[in-house]
Design a protein around this nucleic acid. Structure first.
Lengths: 263, 263
DNA sequence: ACCTGAACACCGTTCAAGT
DNA sequence: ACCTGAACACCGTTCAAGT
């Protein structure tokens, strides 16, 4: 609204449109009216241009949506995390859930791909780091990361669906309501729990996350890769094979069987 | 295509349209061309009618989509399940994952609500039953059900996204690819694992499910609600209160406090 | 290089009529 | 009760021009 000053144009080039304004406008529209309110035509009108002009800056609508993601997490303060790796794992996961819960539109866009915002990657890094500090192998840590992320994502989707349904005037006959006495024989638990379903359903995400984490960590030294419990050596140190990747092996497998970046 | 015979019309009423054909047509279109191919206009054309005629049978497009769900699971054979409750819990969850993985369109529609197909409820029932047989309280069992479902859902969404991305001609710069050497200091694990990310990412769902289940079950007699450890009474056998639900108590713990309006 | 206008092939849904 | 037609207010994207 009250911006007034337009971006300084570098001397003689009067480029009337620029990618930043386009993306910023799209983000504003999304935040104000939801993802579905975004259309090429709408954004074009909003920036005082024509739909086709946008196609000089983005390949298609999906790309525009993906671009709105970049930078959103920069605004979010990075929380203090516990040092204990298990607690840290849970805390980061809960943080991820909390942040996304407050910006539900991000979910819809994320389904188009995966993490696309560099500013958000510290969460994945932190999860990998604490998982490995708890004794998981790199592969197990990646799996743990995905399992946690999938749960968080699924939880948020259905949380949103539930909220939507709550404010729907005439509720459709969804799950618990569709059960009748006749179903008691086939579905005894469901029928019995149906009246209290909505309230029973509510849980504390952190509790569930902590259960999931426990399950994932229980695989630590088990089965395949025992990799000596160096868990607690959690020293940072960005050294990682020294220089600019001169070591042919990309330092990669250094990660696989010895995340040993000591200080 | 080659159907020829139209549904028998009950004598004199020449209702040209009926809900069953509408829904069946929608389902066919979805299966052949995906959810996005469904439009009121398209379905109308397909059944030889006009868009507005459909509105006499469904409230709106969402309702039509939801209706296509009903009955899909009837076609899927119910698998044999292990008797051991923990194994059963995992098996049902994996079955759910497998079935939905083969009908990805169902996912999109499910996000509109929750389970809507009565024929699919046996899975929820089975999860509740085995969770409680493992010692979880009814509330914990419901939470376990949701946690599992959220994970399964999230996993499938990103599995689909990955598949889509794989067959995209020019891959966009998604997560692992966007990392450079400069990020190594901030994101050491991620940078190190990036080259192998796609392969590391792949996991066996059943393994992850089994870890999750372990975590959830570890809460059995723990912390807050000890509710007399009736856990191991898991009298398996499919008998479940014997006959047609005549025993008011529905077996179990009487499910909370016995909502027992018996037959 | 950057932008416009017209056009193509669509949408969901409302409203006023028809039988 | 069941169905139609026209209309409203939209879509994403292609194509051929303009400057």
């Amino acid at each position: 609204m009250a911006e007034g000053v337009k971006k300084k144009r570098s001397a003689g080039r009067p480029r009337r449109l620029d990618p930043e304004t386009i993306v910023a406008t799209a983000r504003r529209v999304i935040e104000e009216e939801g993802v579905d309110a975004v259309s090429m035509r709408r954004i074009a009108k909003e920036v005082g241009s024509t739909p086709m002009a946008l196609y000089h800056y983005v390949r298609d609508k999906d790309e525009l949506l993906l671009l709105t993601l970049a930078g959103v997490s920069a605004a979010i303060p990075r929380p203090e995390l516990p040092v204990d790796p298990r607690a840290r794992l849970i805390a980061v996961s809960a943080h991820m859930h909390g942040v996304l819960g407050r910006m539900p539109w991000v979910l819809k866009v994320l389904a188009l791909g995966d993490l696309t915002d560099k500013q958000a990657l510290w969460m994945a890094e932190e999860i990998l780091d604490s998982a490995m500090a708890c004794g998981l192998s790199p592969a197990q840590a990646v799996h743990a990361y995905r399992t946690i992320w999938h749960f968080v994502y699924g939880d948020l989707v259905f949380r949103a669906a539930m909220a939507r349904r709550r404010e729907e005037p005439e509720r459709r006959r969804y799950f618990p309501a569709m059960l009748t006495e006749d179903d008691r024989a086939e579905l005894p638990h469901l029928t019995a729990l149906a009246p209290r379903w909505d309230e029973l359903q509510e849980y504390d995400v952190t509790e569930q996350l902590s259960a999931i984490v426990d399950g994932l960590l229980s695989r630590a030294h088990g089965a395949a890769a025992p990799d000596r419990a160096e868990g607690t050596d959690g020293a940072e140190g960005p050294d990682r094979t020294g220089g600019t990747g001169g070591t042919g092996g990309t330092g990669g497998t250094g990660e696989i069987d010895a995340p040993d970046r000591r200080a």
